[in-house]
Amino acid sequence: MSRQRFSLSYKAQKAVLIAAFLILPIVLLATLSLYPALKLIFYSFTSWNGLSPRYPWVGLANYKAIFSNPLLFSSFGHNFAYLVGGLIQNVVALYFALILNSKIRGRNLFRAVLFMPFVMNAVAVVFIFRFLYGYQGALDALLQGLGLKALEHDWLGNLSLVNWSLAFVSLWEYFGFNMVIYLAALQSVPHELFEAAELDGAGRLQTLWHITLPNIRSIVQINLLLTISGAIEAFNIPFIMTNGSPPTATFLTNTVNVAFVFNNFGLASAMAIVLLIIVFVVLILQRWLVGIGRDAV
């Protein structure tokens, strides 16, 4: 009898607790993430200036503008540098993770150093690199000292080079993040697998290709997904370095400038929606590829 009463009261408690614990987080999530995302869709069909109470309907004009104004859509070309940089970043991260996963002295020290840029303030990092890249600055001085004078460049002034210089800052800052994730994945691959491979006389590259990589496949995909969406959303580095001036503007720095500098919130919203669609397409493609990968194994 008393058990019955208790289970009933737990049932009531459960309802109250779930409601009480979730209400605030859900309100926050809805007002600051979901509702704005829906609001963006509405704004994207208007020419709202960000202040006026009027939202003049313009239909698809904003979307047409994105694809017809070369200054807007072509800024994705600059994102391309970050994409290539991001892919190299993953190779570098995996390489160091493989080294750190082997028996090696000073492992923790090296791991601590290699991850360090990730925790450094982004503004500070960009300012430091601005000094490094300066005309006849520290990087050129280093190259000269190493006898590589031929490689000296105007790293930020040369317009065909500047985005690659910025993409390197991104690689420098974030590769440690990917490395730590790869390292954790490598540590969770069962040791017996490697021992069995060794018994079978497999070489190092064979083991890497046939044992290690297949076992961390899902982690490789997560890292690549983060890298690709990071490249599509590249913002901080060009914004801090140059305020997103045309030669280094990425799609997102343009979006933000269209809204908060040129007060064209309608167009900026349409750009944000295009960006969101691209990110989600990448996400869905990744899920789909994971599915194919699973079937193939």
Binding site: S33, A37, K39, L40, T255, A259
Partner: peptide, 21 residues
């Protein structure tokens, strides 16, 4: 699912709308 989706919405993009809120 909402938490998962929100994680992939780049915060900066939605500021255009969050600003008003």
């Amino acid at each position: 699912a909402a938490y998962l989706v929100v994680q992939f919405i780049p915060t900066i993009t939605t500021q255009v709308a969050v600003f008003g809120i």
